[in-house]
Simulated assay, not measured.
Amino acid sequence: MSLDAKKLSPVKVAEMPPWPGGAAGGTPQEPARRRIQAGGYLMMLAAVAVMVLPLVWMMLASFKERDEIYTVPIQWLPESFDLSNYAAALAAVPFGNFFINSLITTLVGATLKIALGLTTAYAVVFLEFPFKNLIFGLVVFALLVPQQIVIIPNYTLVSDLGWINTYQGLILPGLASAFGTFLFRQHFLTLPVSVLEAAALDGASHWTRLWRFVVPISAPTIAAVALVSIVSEWNEYLWPLLVVDRAEMMTLPVGLTLLQNNDGVTNWGVLMAGTVLITVPVLLVFFLLQRRIVSGLTSGAVTG
């Protein structure tokens, strides 16, 4: 063997120094990556705690007596899970009327928002008409307008029409959903145009194409818009407070204020019980639609 061959001979594996971290420790960047992941998990847990702990406290406080809420140090668990606060809340104000009013305004308002968003987005994407891009630009601009700016004009119009203390006064001024239109439009841009073209060749009208082809394949986006609309309608407080002054037409958030005024701000057990009655239906809707929320909100996210 030549001298050069001897110089190039391989080194025994046992004589090679171990790589920092070794097989068990992974790459040199592995500890830093794990620290970053741990920090991310801690931040996520802190964010979840900030959102969940008030709900847990509200739920537990609804079973407590008045003296238990003011104990120091804080007593999280009630001494007994008594339903007296719920009975007092139901007896103090007509929660049945509040629930029916909220249910009507939420179902009708959310359904009309979804229908208007679907039809408007379909027209913007699949129809050709003058100033189409300008109209969509106005829809996007509407997202930037705070609701408080249009309250006075809407109230003046509703008052002139005689719609104070009516369902149409509660529902109609908030039907225009720029968010729903924008989300539907972004999703429709990702749909296969060939399917709609084939349907058009078979004689399907725009209405048929919308409800028989577009809507069935847009279920995740519809679920996302439905959830946002339902939560918005159910929790709406300022507008119903302005256009309703009779107890029989109040919705649940406004009725909760009536409960606070009747029972006093210090009786937090009764107030928390009323708040639980308002919150639970929205939480149930969220859990039913949560699987479709992410896919619906991210649908068409990279489409221009």
Rank of each mutant, 00 (worst) to 15 (best):
M1F: 14
A5S: 13
V11F: 10
V11G: 08
P17A: 15
E30Q: 14
R35I: 13
L42V: 15
L42I: 15
M43I: 15
V50G: 00
M51K: 04
L55I: 13
V56S: 00
M59W: 11
R66Q: 14
Y70W: 11
P73T: 11
P73Y: 05
W76D: 00
A89I: 05
G96A: 10
N97A: 13
N97W: 10
F98A: 05
T120S: 15
F126I: 09
P130V: 02
L134Q: 06
P146V: 01
Q147T: 13
Q147P: 00
S159K: 15
D160T: 13
W163F: 10
S177M: 07
A178C: 04
L191D: 02
L196E: 06
E197H: 03
E197S: 06
D202H: 05
D202T: 08
G203M: 01
G203S: 06
T208R: 03
F213L: 04
V215I: 11
P216K: 07
P220S: 04
P220E: 08
A224L: 08
S232T: 14
E236L: 05
Y237A: 07
W239R: 02
M250H: 01
L252Q: 03
V254C: 08
T266G: 10
N267S: 14
N267L: 12
L271E: 00
L271Q: 11
G274D: 06
P281N: 13
L284V: 15
R291D: 15
S295R: 15
T298K: 01
T298N: 09
T298D: 08
